[in-house]
Amino acid sequence: IRVTEDENDEPIEIPSEDDGTVLLSTVTAQFPGACGLRYRNPVSQCMRGVRLVEGILHAPDAGWGNLVYVVN
């Protein structure tokens, strides 16, 4: 998935696990201090948080898609 520190920055590609999840530790390896991800909902244009359970980030209902995710 494509992740950036700010919406206007160049994104970095972060690998997902075989089950489609992303480990928070993978994100923090590239973005120290990150505690989660958010993205701009293409329909509402509002920022939406990615579900985080026990250090594992779960894809939105429509999958990770071609969105750019921003670190929290």
Results as ranks from 00 to 15, higher is better:
residue 1 I to N: 07
residue 2 R to G: 02
residue 5 E to P: 03
residue 6 D to G: 10
residue 6 D to A: 10
residue 6 D to W: 07
residue 8 N to A: 13
residue 8 N to F: 08
residue 9 D to F: 11
residue 9 D to H: 10
residue 10 E to M: 10
residue 10 E to Q: 06
residue 10 E to I: 06
residue 11 P to H: 07
residue 11 P to Q: 04
residue 11 P to A: 11
residue 11 P to S: 07
residue 13 E to R: 11
residue 13 E to F: 10
residue 13 E to K: 08
residue 14 I to T: 01
residue 14 I to F: 03
residue 15 P to K: 15
residue 15 P to D: 10
residue 15 P to Q: 12
residue 15 P to V: 09
residue 16 S to Q: 14
residue 16 S to D: 02
residue 17 E to T: 07
residue 18 D to H: 11
residue 18 D to V: 12
residue 18 D to Y: 09
residue 18 D to S: 11
residue 20 G to C: 04
residue 21 T to Q: 06
residue 21 T to H: 08
residue 22 V to G: 01
residue 23 L to V: 05
residue 23 L to E: 08
residue 24 L to P: 00
residue 25 S to R: 11
residue 26 T to E: 11
residue 26 T to Y: 09
residue 26 T to P: 00
residue 26 T to M: 12
residue 27 V to D: 02
residue 27 V to A: 01
residue 29 A to H: 08
residue 30 Q to H: 15
residue 30 Q to Y: 15
residue 30 Q to T: 09
residue 31 F to W: 06
residue 32 P to S: 07
residue 32 P to T: 06
residue 32 P to D: 04
residue 33 G to I: 04
residue 33 G to K: 12
residue 34 A to V: 04
residue 34 A to G: 05
residue 34 A to L: 02
residue 35 C to N: 08
residue 35 C to T: 14
residue 36 G to T: 02
residue 37 L to W: 05
residue 37 L to H: 01
residue 38 R to H: 12
residue 38 R to Q: 15
residue 38 R to A: 12
residue 38 R to Y: 13
residue 39 Y to H: 04
residue 39 Y to V: 05
residue 39 Y to N: 01
residue 40 R to M: 14
residue 40 R to H: 12
residue 41 N to C: 13
residue 41 N to T: 14
residue 42 P to Y: 02
residue 42 P to D: 09
residue 42 P to F: 04
residue 42 P to E: 11
residue 43 V to A: 10
residue 43 V to W: 09
residue 43 V to F: 08
residue 43 V to L: 12
residue 44 S to H: 07
residue 44 S to Y: 05
residue 44 S to N: 15
residue 44 S to C: 07
residue 45 Q to M: 11
residue 45 Q to L: 12
residue 46 C to Y: 08
residue 47 M to A: 05
residue 47 M to T: 12
residue 47 M to H: 04
residue 47 M to E: 10
residue 48 R to H: 15
residue 48 R to M: 15
residue 49 G to H: 15
residue 50 V to M: 00
residue 50 V to L: 04
residue 50 V to T: 04
residue 50 V to I: 12
residue 50 V to Y: 02
residue 51 R to F: 07
residue 51 R to E: 13
residue 52 L to H: 12
residue 52 L to Q: 10
residue 52 L to G: 04
residue 52 L to F: 08
residue 53 V to R: 09
residue 53 V to P: 00
residue 53 V to T: 14
residue 54 E to W: 03
residue 54 E to C: 07
residue 58 H to M: 13
residue 58 H to K: 07
residue 58 H to N: 06
residue 58 H to Q: 11
residue 58 H to A: 03
residue 59 A to L: 08
residue 59 A to E: 10
residue 60 P to R: 02
residue 60 P to T: 01
residue 60 P to N: 01
residue 61 D to F: 12
residue 61 D to H: 07
residue 61 D to W: 07
residue 62 A to F: 12
residue 63 G to W: 03
residue 64 W to F: 02
residue 64 W to T: 03
residue 65 G to E: 07
residue 65 G to P: 06
residue 66 N to G: 08
residue 66 N to Y: 03
residue 67 L to M: 13
residue 68 V to I: 11
residue 69 Y to N: 05
residue 69 Y to R: 03
residue 69 Y to G: 04
residue 70 V to M: 14
residue 71 V to Y: 04
residue 72 N to E: 15
